[in-house]
Nucleic acid binder design. Structure first.
Length: 306
DNA sequence: AGAACAATAT
DNA sequence: CATATTGTTC
């Protein structure tokens, strides 16, 4: 068993996403612009929603423009700077509204695990993980909650069998309850996690998610950089919360949306008049028809991660 | 004051 | 059951 340990250790190291791999994976969760661009609005509000108003009435995440909107190169279509003066005057859209449930997709979880792996169990605390993930819209609470569950999952596995893991494409999983932790099973679980408190000395280099591509998200990236660099002061400076819409992604690409299939990432240099077609938002009514129902879930398609 | 964790609520 | 929210402790 020990040998195996060293084995997957090597394998794991090789599978570790390189800094570049991790960085550009900017998983813009929300994509409000996209939602708007796609004419996706809350089905609940039959309002035609005039584009000029750009006022996402209800749930539509008007996403508060926390980051300098002034830097917006083009996209002058929606001016978020000036909220919707009419009607709802003075009420910060982002604030007051409750953010929809975050859906931990395999992709998201993978990023989560990778981040934890790079940080090492010891340093893998919600804040750091969140920063390293660089996922827009992700909050510390989201990560904390997920981390809690994840820890339980690891613990469970420890007790059951030592050889679970099932490396990424591999397959053999030793989950005690496939129906319960199928999400976790979809991601390669770093071995060390299962062992026990690796007190430290994780020689993982603090890769820095350089700021590139994307125009916005400066703060988060800065925070991530600061974290990697060890500038705690910087971390504290950025401090801020974000309000977004929904997140998520298809379980296995088995979705039936006409135009929202998988979008590649052309990575257009510059001059692209439109935003990045990184992902498309998808709204599905989870109305259970009967009573209690009435929930909506918006899922964001992965950029083609795995 | 803020973050992490644990427990509880939805 | 999966997340969110809340409470408690460090």
């Amino acid at each position: 068993m020990r040998e195996e340990d060293s084995n997957w250790f090597s394998r794991w190291e090789e599978e570790l996403p390189s800094p570049e791999e991790l960085m550009p994976l900017s998983q813009t969760l929300i994509t409000p612009d996209l939602a708007i661009a796609f004419d996706i609005r809350n089905p609940n509000s039959p309002q035609p929603l005039p584009p000029s108003s750009a006022a996402t009435t209800t749930v539509a995440p008007s996403v508060a423009p926390p980051i300098a909107p002034s830097t917006q190169p083009n996209s002058a279509e929606f001016d978020n700077s000036g909220e919707l003066g009419s009607g709802a005057a003075g009420d910060e859209p982002a604030r007051t509204l409750k953010r929809p449930r975050l859906v931990w997709t395999p992709q998201l979880h993978k990023r989560f695990v990778d981040a934890v792996a790079h940080l090492g169990i010891k340093n893998a605390v919600p804040k750091t993980i969140m920063q390293l993930m660089s996922v827009d819209g992700l909050t510390r609470e989201n990560v904390a909650s997920h981390l809690q569950k994840y820890r339980l999952y690891l613990k469970r596995m420890q007790g059951i069998s030592g050889g679970g893991g099932g490396g990424g494409g591999g397959g053999g999983l030793a989950s005690a309850d496939p129906a319960t932790d199928h999400l976790f099973a979809s991601s390669p679980v770093p071995p060390h996690f299962l062992h026990q408190g690796r007190t430290n000395s994780d020689h993982f280099l603090p890769f820095v998610p350089v700021a590139a591509l994307q125009h916005h998200h400066h703060q988060q990236q800065m925070a991530a950089v600061a974290a990697a660099a060890g500038h705690q002061q910087l971390q504290q400076q950025y401090h801020h919360h974000r309000q977004v819409g929904h997140f998520g992604s298809p379980p296995n690409g088995q979705f039936e949306h006409p135009f929202l299939t998988r979008q590649s990432q052309p990575v257009h240099r510059i001059g692209a008049p439109v935003h990045n077609p990184i992902a498309a938002a998808y709204v599905e009514d989870l109305e259970s028809g009967t009573a209690t129902g009435g929930k909506k879930v918006l899922t964001l398609f992965p950029t083609g991660d795995d």
